[in-house]
Design a protein around this nucleic acid. Structure first.
Lengths: 141, 141
DNA sequence: GTCTATGCAAAGCTTTTGCAGGAGA
DNA sequence: TCTCCTGCAAAAGCTTTGCATAGAC
């Protein structure tokens, strides 16, 4: 059950100067459908059954292309691990250290007190919090 | 010119259940002296002239130990790159995409609007901003 | 003296690169 | 036809592991 139709995905990619191809459309579809902030490995494993000739090289190439063209954001939360988010709106990420799931949350870092950055040109805001989510929290009521 | 004396460093490490050794003291001294948020490679290269038998294995082991015992924070700003910060107080990092330098700035993510995290136990706050610093900004006055 | 840390060498992974074949315009 | 994309194989590079020696207490 996708959140975007294939023509919508094609148009969205074209708007970001990315030509459509089967791997690119399927990868983008996977990202917007599951919103699971997957790694390259997870994307590859999720799609290789359907796209039997898919290679990790293509997934790496595609994710780099998507990131360069602002179609996805690279999430750096755990070391030696890059996750991808197709929601490029300004938001934060919460990672549960028990179940490993990553949730979105709203915040506004640009309102924060960062006078030290006067004179700097700010381009990208990133924020994440680690902790224990409601489902994993034994204190939940 | 160090910001902490060797006895102070030894005591600080001991307070965090870390035994002193020459590599550990020198690495910690390097972190607090230069505040440059270095990578393992940069730490190794900076110290190997003085500690001629130093190995990267030791730097890796030491940084993992420091991170586990809350003596340093791991900064994940650029993919495939881990930087270390001996300032474990809650603060944000600004990385200049031109010169590559990383500066600290104050902020308070805990004041942010993140109702979505009600019920979650929040343990670590991380925030970073990328942009162009004052020195690299051609528009500076 | 005992236990722990160091550091060399080798292994293990992830990621990148080179390139030939194939798909799309 | 021409260009770009794909994906196999190999290379590269960072990080981890095993283990014998060295050092800390």
């Amino acid at each position: 059950m996708s959140k975007m139709t294939v023509p919508e995905i094609k148009k969205h990619l074209a708007n970001h100067n990315i030509r459509a191809s089967l791997p690119r459309v399927k990868i983008y579809d996977y990202l917007v459908t599951y919103e699971s902030h997957p790694t390259v490995d997870e994307i590859y494993n999720a799609l290789v059954d359907e796209l039997v000739t898919l290679s990790k090289t293509t997934v790496y190439n595609t994710m780099d292309l998507f990131a360069e063209n602002d179609v996805v954001i690279e999430l750096l939360i755990e070391k030696n691990e890059i996750r991808y988010d197709a929601d490029i709106m300004h938001h934060g990420h919460f990672k549960c250290i028990k179940c490993g799931d990553v949730f979105d949350f709203d915040y506004n870092l640009s309102n924060a007190d960062h006078d030290a950055l006067n004179g700097c040109e700010l381009k990208e805001y990133h924020a994440y919090i680690k902790g224990v989510c409601e489902n994993c929290n034994p204190k939940k009521h």
